[in-house]
Amino acid sequence: MSPLLTIDDLSVTFARAGLLSRLVNPFPLPSFNVIDGVTLSLMPGETLGLVGESGSGKTTLARTILGLVRAAAGRIVFEGRDVRTPADFRAMRRRSAMMFQDPVASLSPRLRIGTLLTEPQIIQGLPMPDRRAVAKALLALVGLPASFVDRFPHELSGGQARRVGVARALAMKPHLLLADEPTAGLDVSVQGDVLNLIGDLKRELGFAAMIVTHNLAMIRHVSDRLAIMYLGRLVEAGPTQDVFCAPMHPYTATLIQSEPIPDPRRRSQNPAVTGEIPSVFRRPSGCEFHTRCPIARDRCKTEAPTYRPMGTDRMVRCHFPLQTGGQEREAFSRASANQKGKLT
């Protein structure tokens, strides 16, 4: 089977933005790779979870795939065809949908919810005999009362408005779904509905999905494969269960350890990782995770690790990957336990 979507060595470059920072820093700044050499593929019907913290470039990557951001280098192949020109991207976008990260901000404050929900289909020219009924069905889909059709966005709580945004995107029945934080701001009781719904629609229509998220607890249950991003580069990829059970990159292990556990009898002893997330504008030397890595050694500070295969279906970018029974794994557990009491 050939992949539905292939991304090969994709890079995206931004010039350092902001007048203020340019005034503060008078030297002409070169541009920066916010996405750097990302290679991944998506099989038909597959769900890929793209996981990373804010600033890791997940959203930019998703937007680049849809042609909303221009790539500086690399290749995108969709359904066997190179996607290069604006016309190529338009053709691809007609067969795919993006669920944006912040639908709340995109809800026009003066339109009623019923209108907002059916607007995209009307714009696409889809026939709709009963707009109110469609809107009510969509509200039911995301667990909101039908009476909300007459409400305005500002009359909803943060989470309620978020659901309206999700309903709006799902109404388009996409072929390839690029979902950016599809459940951020949703309640757990509704998050499941939305994800089950995406799953049902996926089975029915056979589309593939790429879910961009920082929500590990959720992505664990809905993705077949995971790719972990840090500062615009993939640091690890593999089948979801394998990555969760035996993370190889210390960053992945850190993410998993940082998740709060909903059990007061198993409170975490200390933060798994300290320090701030660095910026792509000031990439640390060597391995970019070395500034926060609990097992970093001298080599990590100077030499950048390559993104290399481990076994048949996993990739990792680390000089000292954590392996079951290996000394790195032990060192990781020891090091993250040693940070007890430190605040930062």
Binding site: P145, V188, G192, D193, M218, H221, P262
Partner: peptide, 22 residues
Amino acid sequence: CDPARFHERLDRLPTIPGSLPN
């Protein structure tokens, strides 16, 4: 409903049927 409580992959996430009262 909290997916953080389950480590085995769930095919369907548990939900609470119905919606908030008006």
